[in-house]
Design a protein around this nucleic acid. Structure first.
Lengths: 133, 133
DNA sequence: TGCATAGTTGCATTATAACGCAACTATGCA
DNA sequence: TGCATAGTTGCGTTATAATGCAACTATGCA
C-alpha cells in the first residue's frame, strides 16, 4: 500500500494545475466516474494531455482506475477523512467566470451518450475536427 | 479587491510546498496568529525562506498580515466558504511521521514567551547558533 | 487477420518555482 | 544618534513540472 506515509504536499501538488482541478472537480461535483474520451470531449483538451494528468492524479492517490475493454474508468478515491474534506473543498470552490459551469455542461451532455451506463461513443471532438477538413 | 476572479489553482499552488503547508497547518490547527520570528523558531528554517513563503501565502489570499512595531503578525483569512473548508482539510491531514506534531510542540513552547499576547522574544534559534561559536 | 480507435509514453523544449547569499529597509531602545 | 534586530528582496543557480509531437500498445469488430 502506498497510503502509509502520505506526504501532505502531494495532495496539493496534484491539484496545483488547472487541468487537474477541472478533472477532479467534475468527478467531485457529479460523483461520476469517467473515461478518457469523455473527459476529452468535456474539457476540449488533447487526449495525451489529459492522459498524463490522469496519471498524475492516480499516482497521488486521488483517483483509481478500472479498465473495461478499450475504456478506462476513473473515479475519486473515497473514504479517507482528508480526501472527503478535499472533495468538499472542490465542490465549494468559486466559479466566477463560469469556466467550470461550461465543463460541467459539456460533461453532462457527453454522459447522455452512454449506453447502459457504459461509454460507447468515442471522442466526438476529434470527429468534428475531421469533418472540418 | 483581489477576491474577485479567484483562480482555484492558486489556492492549491499556495500549498503545493511542504514549508507553506507547515505554516498554514500551524495557524489552522491552533487558530493563532504568528510573527516571522515565532515561525523561524517553530519550523527551524531560515528567516529569509519563511519570509518569502509567507509572501506567497499572502499573495494567494490565504494569509493577512498586520504590522505592529518591528513585528508582523500573520493569520489565516477566514469567512469564505472554500477557505474554511480548506482549513478543515488542513486539520484533517495525516501526520504519520509526526513531523507536524514536532512543529506544533515547538510552536506552543515558543508562544509561552509572549508577553500580554505579543511577541517580545526575537529569534531564539539564531541566538543559540551564536552561543555555539 | 487487418483495421479503427481508446489510451500511453519517450523525448526535447519551455516555463515555473525553490533556494542560498548578501544587501537592503524599518523600528525600538540605550 | 547609533546600534541591534525584525523583516524584505534582488540576483544567479538549480530543480521541477507542463507541453507538443510522434510513436507506441491494447482491444473490439468486420
Amino acid at each position: 500500500m502506498h497510503s502509509i506515509n502520505i506526504k501532505p504536499q502531494e495532495i496539493f501538488q496534484a491539484l496545483a494545475d488547472p487541468t487537474r482541478i477541472r478533472i477532479a472537480r467534475l468527478l467531485a461535483d457529479t460523483g461520476e466516474e469517467a473515461c478518457l474520451c469523455e473527459l476529452v470531449d468535456s474539457l476540449v483538451e488533447p487526449q495525451y494531455k489529459l492522459s498524463r494528468h490522469l496519471k498524475i492524479l492516480r499516482q497521488s492517490g486521488l483517483l483509481s482506475a478500472e479498465k473495461d475493454g478499450r475504456w478506462v474508468y476513473h473515479r475519486l478515491v473515497r473514504g479517507a477523512p482528508h480526501l472527503d474534506r478535499l472533495y468538499d473543498l472542490l465542490k465549494a470552490l468559486p466559479d466566477s467566470d463560469s469556466l467550470f459551469a461550461n465543463d460541467l455542461a459539456n460533461f453532462q451532455n457527453r454522459m447522455c451518450l452512454r449506453e447502459d451506463g457504459r461509454c460507447r461513443a468515442g471522442i466526438q471532438t476529434k470527429r468534428l475536427a475531421v469533418e472540418w477538413d
